[in-house]
Design a protein around this nucleic acid. Sequence first.
DNA 1: TATGCCATACTTCCATACAAGTAAAGCCTC
DNA 2: GAGGCTTTACTTGTATGGAAGTATGGCATA
Lengths: 225, 225
Amino acid sequence: MDIARITIAPSTAFQVHDWLRKRVQQGDLPPGMRISETEVAAAIGISRQPVREAFIRLASDGLAEVRPQRGTYISKISVAAVLSARFIREAVEADLARIVAQARPAEMLDRMADEIARQTAADQAGNVNDFIESDDRFHRLLALAAGQEAVWADLERLKAQMNRLRHLSMRAFDRGFIIGQHQQILDALRKGDADASETAMRTHLRQMLTEVPQMAAARPDYFTD
Amino acid sequence: MDIARITIAPSTAFQVHDWLRKRVQQGDLPPGMRISETEVAAAIGISRQPVREAFIRLASDGLAEVRPQRGTYISKISVAAVLSARFIREAVEADLARIVAQARPAEMLDRMADEIARQTAADQAGNVNDFIESDDRFHRLLALAAGQEAVWADLERLKAQMNRLRHLSMRAFDRGFIIGQHQQILDALRKGDADASETAMRTHLRQMLTEVPQMAAARPDYFTD
DNA sequence: TATGCCATACTTCCATACAAGTAAAGCCTC
DNA sequence: GAGGCTTTACTTGTATGGAAGTATGGCATA
């Protein structure tokens, strides 16, 4: 039997945090921008306390920096943090790829193919957000196919800094190239070739090594380290 | 020129968070225990607000769970979260081992040997905390030797759940065995044998796969999932 | 003009009061 | 005794006032 799904209204602080987090990740609140408890509270029409607690959560996410008695600022994108997250992603997804290549779960691979189709459509429509979301789902499906769903949840946390960079870079870089790499990965997985799958995945994720310096050079005011 | 190191007194909320976090990680505050803003505030002699904010941070760490209008509880150790963190560690440290084996930075390898010596001493003295700290330093040195210090910082966050488990299991399991595995890893690194280094590291970190179910069976009230 | 002091207008931090929700014990009713 | 209601004592959530610290512009002074 299905149990009833009871949802209680989330607290104000929770909602504010969620709202701010999304806006930061999408680049709506740019790195370095100053935000103020008073201003946000007034804009929403609530007291300062829930906003303050949302700021604390945002700081825990690494997306904001609270300087006591001075102000709160949207974190600049740490190049070191992005590269670290990238390193971890490569190591983890390389292992995931090997596992999936050996198991070859047909349904999951089909769903990955579906995502590639969606990416092509989003690319042609010029819809950056759709593309990024499908990109994430593609990689998440890999974790699912390897029976390691929780791993992707952990990676999501690490990707926080990377995501912001991606919203900047997606406009500048070739999405068709990314789609091609996804296809290569999927082809190798279907063949059950663990070595080729790992190599394709590592190549794909190393792409970022060239993108990061370019982005940092283009918008130095958005980056640190 | 060196710039002056100015330290400002950390906020009360920060200190409370730090205190609670350490106590949770060392198992002083057991999984499932109920904690209350009012009680902690009274015990320390401050108001509820900073304690409340410390609870929020603790929840962000995954070490506590705030149930609105009901109470706040120390998180039980999520088996899924531990296994996920372990999977990530294996993938990442396998890559790190390969890199270090190829570079063979003499000074770092010597420092890793020092840590093994400290672990032997701590083991004979029966000092669990010293052993765990040295164990962490050993693995951290590996990241340092690979030029990926930031990676270890990210792993630290993921290890939060694992650390609590370790304080439970270290008393039950054979520390001498762990030391031997560290030595095997170091030997392979010194030889510059990337494959052997990777294998030794993976073997070492897979040890946990047998420990986790045993611990969960021994103390089911401490675990979830 | 340059320098040091100071008032002022911010900021985050903490304390306090109250609001809203939960849970459990006690009591009443059947 | 069983079931249901009410009271009561909790819990966390929000609002508000003030404390403490910071940055800035103005002004007096040399």
